[in-house]
Amino acid sequence: MKETKIVVKDLNLFYGDKQALKKITMDIPDKRVTAFIGPSGCGKSTFLRVINRMNDLIDHVKIDGEVYIDGVNIYDRSLDIVNLRKNVGMVFQKSNLFPKTVYENIVYGPRINGIKDKKVLDEIVERTLNQAAIWEEVKDRLNDNALSLSGGQQQRLCIARALAVEPEIILMDEPASALDPISTAKIEELIHDLKKQYTIVIVTHNMQQAARVSDQTAFFYLGELIEFDRTTTIFTNPSKKQTEDYVTGRFG
């Protein structure tokens, strides 16, 4: 058994009066890929945003319960949220590159963290683009507008941009749902490579994708965590009826 990276205890989340997450308790292992699956609106994205406290940016959100990363309660009032977000990278469903050059997108994070040395920044760009397996494709286009790249390239650039601030955890919210099969395959390959170094949590609607890339799978339904187990178990021998119905495509 791998070490645990993230611990969630009795987490409830409310949007105003509406409860979106109900008493979630789970341990997410280090340097593994954990997939969240479940029907639309069941709270997967919301839970993902709990881990880097992105929900704090939304008005009227109330959270109780505890979330620990490496034993640190990240909802501690004195905690530096900015530092937390730096160390928990996030990749969104739709590429959200800034309308700047490829280079400027990558160095955005390092720059706001105070790195000014051009040499260091250059190194970061090359390293992360290599990590995201896109260096060969864009190395001659570093000064092009990032938005001129293809959708799949943009999404891998988003991953590279997230890596540039050297997080330990990467959250991905349906990172490949807007991409064609070839680009999707590239992203999945990338996830497979990245898990050697990073703890990865990925939300996906695509059951095969979850089966292919993840080690553990969590099934959510109506804000509750129904079942959380090894991916093979979830897909071949789930213990809950709801999980079985969902993974076999009988609802959702």
């Binding site: 070490e3 645990t4 611990v7 620990y68 990363i69 490496d70 034993g71 640190v72 990240i74 004195s78 905690l79 530096d80 949220i81 900015v82 530092n83 937390l84 160390n87 330990e168």
Partner: peptide, 15 residues
């Protein structure tokens, strides 16, 4: 062990 990691975790940085 998990909670002991907190001591020198980079997440522990106070604001």
């Amino acid at each position: 062990e998990f909670f002991q990691k907190a001591v020198n975790s980079k997440y522990a940085k106070k604001i």
